[in-house]
């Protein structure tokens, strides 16, 4: 994004709504006091730029600086040493960090896979506009409207080893008797995938539904007359036309899930062991439990660059798909 002085004509284009001769509009009155158009423009956008600088740009730059130091936020009086790239070196060679990234990748990939499949499936079903489809749409969208903390809490109850209904139902069907979801090292990563999918598949559905509704009926009718079966119609009309929407949903969900924190903290707090310790949980521990501020700043920058870079490549791809 380019932040520069807005073109001078912006000032001139300020609509003089209600600017009668008796009571000129703000811009008109200021101009009457001898303020030039560029100065006026700066005056209007100045506060916003200051706010952005204070809460976005400055923390980012400061984090970048901290990532090259050994600063610890719990010992503000110690001398801060410049350590160069040592923090980055440590992170990229740390097995813990790689494990954390692996856990994150597993979570992001699988949760998005299931959300896409289920979300698109639901969208196709709801799009048939049967009687009461409005009611079902609302019902399906409910999980998305809940707070992640609430969702985490009640799924913890459902997963509760002794009294949890989820474990009870699974036990009932497989008859093992000791099934537990979040206590098991192999199953815990799937537990967070399951809950996230339950919560966010409706979101993917909503966006896909917007895509499906944008396909005109006559294209389907043309395909019907042209003797295309349902499978061919899906792959040659529905999917290509819904793809830009689906890709957008994937982008949003991937960014969100890459920085997943609240839901996992509520459900497993990263456990058992560190099997569900996604990157942001690890980051929070390094920063606010171990107080390795410099180290965690470097980690945060690495995560930021990864998401930012991946998102940019993805947006280019998305634009190419849309241009087709």
């Amino acid at each position: 994004m380019r932040i520069g002085p807005p073109a001078a004509r912006v000032g001139r284009q300020v609509p003089l709504a209600g600017a009668g001769p008796a009571r000129p509009a703000l811009a008109g009155r200021l101009r009457a006091r001898g303020l030039s158009d560029p100065l006026l423009a700066w005056l209007f956008i100045g506060p916003t730029i200051l706010l952005l600088l204070a809460i976005n740009i400055f923390p980012l730059l400061w984090t970048i600086w901290l990532s090259f130091t050994n600063y610890r936020a719990n010992r503000p009086n110690e001398t801060v040493e410049w350590v160069g790239l040592r923090n980055y070196q440590r992170i990229l060679t740390s097995e813990d960090i790689w494990h954390t990234l692996q856990v994150t990748a597993h979570f992001v990939c699988w949760s998005i896979f299931f959300q896409v499949v289920i979300g698109l499936g639901l969208a196709l079903l709801i799009n048939r506009q049967f009687k009461g489809s409005g009611f079902w749409t609302t019902l399906i969208l409910l999980p998305m409207m809940l707070s992640p903390a609430v969702v985490g809490t009640f799924w913890t109850y459902l997963f509760q080893p002794q009294a949890g209904i989820f474990n009870y139902i699974v036990n009932f069907f497989i008859g093992a008797g000791d099934f537990t979801m979040i206590g098991d090292v192999r199953l815990a990563p799937w537990a967070i995938v399951l809950v996230d999918t339950w919560m966010w598949a409706p979101y993917v559905m909503l966006i896909c539904l917007a895509g499906l509704r944008s396909i005109p009926d006559y294209i389907y009718e043309a395909a019907e007359v042209d003797r295309a079966g349902p499978v061919r119609t899906f792959f040659s009309i529905t999917l290509p036309m819904v793809l830009p929407f689906l890709m957008l949903a994937v982008l949003f969900r991937a960014i969100e899930n890459f920085k997943m924190f609240d839901l996992v903290v509520e459900l497993t707090s990263g456990g058992p062991g560190s099997t569900t310790e996604v990157a942001s949980i690890n980051l929070k521990r390094e920063a606010f439990e171990k107080w390795r501020t410099g180290f965690s700043s470097a980690f945060a920058i690495i995560l930021f660059v990864t998401v930012f870079g991946a998102a940019n490549i993805y947006v280019k791809l998305l634009n190419r798909v849309k241009a087709r």
Partner: peptide, 30 residues
């Protein structure tokens, strides 16, 4: 009978082309 079984061709008022296909693929579709 379903439209596909009637062996008719329909030209719609709107340009009902398959938008992500080339002209060739549109013509080859049926």
């Amino acid at each position: 009978a379903a439209p596909a079984e009637r062996d008719v061709a329909f030209v719609f008022q709107q340009y009902s082309l398959y938008p992500h296909y080339s002209v060739y693929d549109n013509l080859a579709f049926p």
